[in-house]
């Protein structure tokens, strides 16, 4: 097992390097370099920028050096000092802008993942076991709608509907009195009350997809020989279902967690813009609009790395529950 994890970790290194290069390229993509934009921005707001400050900034980010050296300096600053660069539109270090928002994004994403599984797996099992029943058709149809309606549209419609019937705007993650308050137990409780709206909205598409996959996988497994064997042994239907085919069918789904995570984070980005949540989405959008590239690139870098870690965790989880993978991994 440890061997397997080590093996997977080693595989990740080139992937992480590639991600960092892409993030760096994204930072460099828009025309005009960062420093000029930054100085323009400061001068627009009336601050005079001294020569020495410019030189200091140039040195810090190696802007006078060739591109590949800039990349290494950027990486060095991140790895050694946790310095992701500066956001000129916020006039703060990127890490400070991102910090709390990233945590909230991850909290919403993980909640969404859990909710997706909690809803989809039981429904998928039901639909497979009672294939072609009325409820199976109903779930399938709802699933299709869930896949067809984009997240932002669900958000729009729900916000509109709630506002229209109750007059309450369900935007934001906190009640007004907690929005700018420091973290406290009461604030967490407040968050837990409001987090369900975005979580459920983001979960729709993923749930619909997962139900279909689970139903299909389980249908495949239900007709397999080992199910007949277990039945011939005298195992009761319910116990049989959950001990054998359900477990086998769920295993490959565990490995899809890694792939659903980027989708959830994508969904979160767009829903949080519609719902105006204090997460990464709105800031990311603004960063792209104003070409605040250190901020935008860092977001992409961090979100991707978190996804990679998620994939790794799901692979380890899969190896832990599935002996075939575990032993296959050792042999490699």
């Amino acid at each position: 097992m440890i061997h397997y994890i080590g093996h997977r970790l080693l595989q990740l290194i080139p992937l992480l390097i590639a991600i960092s290069i892409i993030a760096f390229v994204i930072i460099q993509l828009p025309p005009g370099d960062y420093l000029t934009t930054y100085i323009n921005q400061l001068e627009l707001s009336g601050t005079k920028v001294s020569e020495s400050a410019i030189v200091a900034l140039e040195r810090q980010y190696g802007l006078d050096k060739p591109m590949y050296q800039q990349y290494f300096i950027w990486m060095k600053n991140i790895l050694l000092h946790g310095d992701f660069g500066r956001s000129f539109s916020w006039n703060e270090p990127v890490s400070k802008v991102i910090g709390e928002r990233l945590v909230l994004t991850m909290v919403i994403s993980i909640f969404t993942l859990i909710v997706t599984w909690l809803i989809a797996i039981p429904i998928g099992i039901y639909s497979a076991v009672r294939q072609y029943s009325v409820l199976d058709y109903i779930f399938s149809f709802i699933g299709f709608i869930g896949l067809a309606v984009p997240n932002f549209l669900i958000a729009l419609v729900i916000v509109y509907f709630v506002f229209d019937t109750t007059g309450i705007a369900i935007t934001g993650l906190f009640s007004p009195e907690y929005a700018d308050a420091p973290w406290s137990f009461a604030k967490v409780l407040d968050l837990l009350q409001r987090i369900w709206v975005p979580v459920l909205i983001i979960a729709t598409a993923g749930t619909a997809g997962l139900i279909r996959t689970m139903r299909g996988m389980l249908l495949d497994e239900l007709s397999k020989q080992y199910v007949v064997t277990a039945r011939a042994k005298g195992v009761a239907e319910k116990k049989l279902l959950f001990k054998y085919p359900v477990r086998v069918a769920v295993n490959p789904l565990i490995s899809t967690i890694g792939w659903t995570l980027p989708t959830i984070i994508s969904g979160e980005a767009i829903v949080s813009i519609v719902l105006n949540l204090p997460t990464t989405g709105p800031v990311l959008l603004d960063a792209f609009r104003t070409q605040d590239m250190y901020l935008a690139g860092s977001f992409i870098l961090i979100l991707s790395i978190l996804t990679v870690i998620g994939t790794l965790l799901s692979d380890i989880l899969l190896a832990w529950v599935d002996p075939r993978i575990r032993f296959g991994g050792v042999e490699e």
């Binding site: 020989q225 007949v228 064997t229 042994k233 054998y244 477990r247 086998v248 599935d322 002996p323 075939r324």
Partner: peptide, 16 residues
């Protein structure tokens, strides 16, 4: 009781 054609398929591969 019953035994089957392909023991690989007849056993669940994720249980000992």
């Amino acid at each position: 009781s019953m035994i089957f054609q392909e023991p690989m398929k007849a056993f669940s591969s994720i249980h000992t």
